[in-house]
């Protein structure tokens, strides 16, 4: 998210300092770290929380040949399968911070990334129209509550983001106060759901439903005016 644009809209917000960030990280770690430090889940959380190249290396060793195998099964082509290893593991690295233990195992998270990247790669290669992508095609959370939360929809194009961000921020003010507060915590201050619930002193379920309401209201507002 573009912080300059947001600071204009939210003048009271200051950018997060390194100290804030490390405090957040340690809260993250306490809230979400699974017990076995050598489990795939721990390694993934560590990759995301502290950009640990050590943890990422181990994930790479555990998964690259499986990803390659899935590539061979789907493409029957060695070069494409190697490309898939690169593409999928790059996504694991880049999205590691978005991984959340509530979403299931690391295996299933990496499986989904691999299948979806393979699909998009093949469509690009075959020059198919880009009207639908893997993220449109596969259900993202099997119908659970968080399925429609926007963290899930990652868009690679960053071009129009600056403009979008400031527009979104201005629409935020039209939301009811409680929804506004939740959206600020999650999208502007980059807090986890757990942290935000603690700070706002509301139950996690309430936070999630306010977030969902707020986001869908935002979509409506933006849909009407753009």
């Amino acid at each position: 998210m573009n912080s300059a644009a947001l600071r204009k809209e939210y003048p009271t917000l200051r950018p997060m300092s390194d100290r804030d960030q490390s405090a957040v990280n340690s809260v993250n770690a306490r809230l979400t770290a699974p017990v076995d430090p050598d489990s795939d889940e721990s390694l993934l959380v560590e990759t995301g929380n502290s950009q640990s190249t050590e943890a990422f290396n181990r994930l790479f060793q555990r998964y690259s040949s499986r990803i390659y195998a899935m590539g061979m099964k789907l493409t029957r082509n060695e070069q494409l399968s190697k490309d898939l290893v690169q593409e999928a593991m790059l996504n694991v690295w880049r999205k590691a911070r978005l991984y959340d233990l509530d979403r299931g195992t690391a295996q299933s998270w990496i499986f989904t990334i691999t299948r979806n990247r393979c699909f998009d790669m093949l469509r690009k290669l075959k020059r198919q129209p880009n009207c639908v992508t893997a993220d449109d095609i596969w259900p993202q959370d099997n119908g659970s509550e968080s399925a429609i939360l926007p963290e899930e929809a990652l868009h690679e194009e960053q071009g129009s983001l600056v403009a979008e961000t400031s527009i979104i921020a201005s629409y935020c003010k039209q939301l009811p106060e409680p929804q506004q507060a939740v959206i600020e915590q999650i999208y502007i201050l980059d807090r986890t759901h757990d942290e935000a619930a603690e700070i706002l002193k509301i139950p996690l379920g309430t936070l999630k439903s306010r977030l969902r309401l707020g986001v869908s209201k935002l979509r409506q507002l933006i849909g009407v005016d753009l």
Partner: peptide, 21 residues
Amino acid sequence: LVSNIIQQPQHAAADTPLPQE
């Protein structure tokens, strides 16, 4: 490959824009 990948920036949760309708 690994050393190339870890040069890349990671996504923060706040990098994620709202889904396009």
